[in-house]
Design a protein around this nucleic acid. Structure first.
Lengths: 337, 337
DNA sequence: AAAGATTAATAAATCGATTTATTATGGAAA
DNA sequence: TTTCCATAATAAATCGATTTATTAATCTTT
């Protein structure tokens, strides 16, 4: 077992000082007036023996880790997994690695994770924030750490964020249902005071209000256990027999909703029209494909990483944080015919 | 902006040496005969000011990082995302963090990622290995790093692995189709010489052979771009009109296959019966729910992390690496009625 | 009472890099 | 000939912990 080479080994083998080796490897040879012959000799040897600087030592000294911390709600949710994947790719191409983890929308867990990231000296934070971590994020920002929020934002946190136009999306989709003649439209979603969810509910309400219809809203407690989502939806649908359409607020609720609808033998759209937020394989392939609001996943990921890389490369630029709002696409399928 | 406290700050504030502080914080006070009063005084102060040791410095000195590297094929695939999620939870509970990344089944990329992990001094590796990285893994093992493979294994790598009984799973499922009277059964999957895929194909072939039927196999080049999966499936299905059943080798191929079937207006199971490997929301919710082979995801994750933690805690135990083979469940739905 | 053993704490070395401060040398200017 | 200034390289300090080696004080033992 060959033990790993250090910069001292390199320096000794070449009979030069480690300072010189370090300068050369960090591209500061010219600035430090190191002779071209020596530069070449060192580089050649380093290449030959395959020496790689110990990044821990490097990080300890420089204070940079080239790691970005990414916190999503749940990495096993396709929406977040896809975004994570795209961000990962872009980050790698720019010399950054990603550590990610799932917050479960749990404030306590998220605080722990932020501390863990901080402890690991990540260079920047990307987060779909749950409520209640305003102070933690503000403290990060005060310490000069780049922070980008996505999917939602916290109004009391003064950082960049990337979102979609939630209010307009549900407003528009609800109008679509109304135009098709549906009058008793329910909205089922996770209980949440997060900006994106509040906006979605509001868009739905606004659309109904504009036509003088009454909203029916069912909020479900966020949970990892599918049964605890399916159960409440089932009782809700059994209770509200007069509905002619239902709007699901997220892909997860939508998928669970379809399971309920399927098991109850409800026909879509004859008995009940369906629209869901987030597009998802399940919606495309359902018996009668389900109309859905597709988020611009690639655009979201691109914007997030661009904003973050920008901040990492220009740490001084104290320009005001900005919010990017992206458009969604209503994919009309015959579930709302 | 308060700058972070170091152990020296703590030592100075308390008028003791940093050695003492370090011993106390690492629970070696008794062993080092440090007086209980001093221990208490130090612990109290540390708690009070919220001092946390710099883990980079710690890792540099001790050579341990408390990080586990997890390499899956594609984090946006629900199968891998779910397993990653479960492993992440278990790891956190045991004081380990996870860095994960997607290999894309790409040998070159995987080699890079292994080097990245190595560079970051991860303490252990969990990997769904692509072909061609035998040497890299063996080199890790030679250097004493714990390595656990899952989903598949590399015969030339002498490390623990956790798998399912692929051959029996497809054998059994194919027999199920044959029992139902289907005779022209095709198998569509990703082209791969990985152990799990070879076994799946073999199980299918064996079942057909046992009944004197002829296999029809379509292999698709692994790709991130869905169109490059859907296209080949579509032409294959158009070409082979005599088929009465089709077996998809992975969840991703299965989902794409259903899209093709749906768009071609093929009726399941009247025109074509369908079975897929991996269970998946899409299969449960398809027009006629699709029979699928469900992997024991929780069991897989549990076994993987248990084996790895075991190795991390008993680095000396040079007991022979073992393979764990788990059972799958054939979930029969009316797509193969 | 001197030598040895315990106890309780500390000084210094180390991990592997980066960065600041310093030195030795040869040539130009005074 | 002395002084000054580039040039080219190096020694030493530093990042923040852990760990080894050492010291000073007290207690036993003979």
């Amino acid at each position: 077992m060959k033990k790993k080479l250090s910069i001292v080994d390199i320096a000794q083998s070449l009979n030069v000082s480690k300072t010189t080796v370090s300068f050369i490897l960090n591209g500061r040879a010219q600035e430090k007036r190191i002779s071209p012959e020596l530069v070449e000799r060192v580089l050649k040897y380093v290449e030959e023996v395959g020496y790689k600087p110990n990044s821990l030592a490097k990080s300890l000294r420089t204070g940079k880790s080239n790691i970005i911390g990414l916190m999503v709600e749940d990495i096993s949710n396709p929406f977040f997994a896809s975004i994570a994947r795209l961000i990962e790719d872009r980050a790698y191409k720019n010399g950054y690695k990603i550590i990610y983890c799932s917050t479960d929308n749990d404030t306590g867990k998220t605080k722990d994770l932020i501390n863990m990231f901080r402890d690991r000296h990540v260079d920047g934070y990307i987060i779909a924030p749950p409520e209640g971590i305003e102070d933690d994020l503000n403290s990060l920002i005060k310490d000069g750490m780049p922070v980008v929020m996505f999917d939602r934002h916290l109004p009391q946190v003064n950082a960049d964020y990337v979102e979609i136009d939630n209010l307009f999306s549900t407003y528009n989709a609800t109008l679509h249902l109304i135009d098709k003649g549906y009058k008793n439209i329910a909205f089922i979603t996770f209980a949440s005071r997060q900006t994106q969810m509040v906006a979605r509910v509001q868009g739905y309400k606004d659309a109904l209000a504009s036509k003088g219809l009454t909203p029916v809203i069912k909020e479900i407690v966020f949970n990892q256990d599918e049964d605890l989502i399916i159960g409440p939806i089932e009782s809700f649908l059994k209770e509200h027999t007069g509905l002619d359409a239902v709007f699901f607020g997220t892909n997860h609720v939508g998928a669970c909703g379809l399971k309920v609808i399927s098991s109850l033998g409800i026909k879509v759209p004859e008995d009940l029209a369906v629209i869901s937020f987030d597009d998802y394989d399940v919606f495309k392939l359902y018996k009668t494909p389900v109309t859905a609001i597709a988020q611009p996943i690639i655009d979201i990921a691109d914007n997030v990483i661009t904003v973050l890389l920008n901040k990492l490369n220009n740490p001084l630029s104290a320009n005001k944080p900005q919010g990017v709002i992206l458009k969604t696409e209503l994919r009309i399928r015959d579930s709302s015919k």
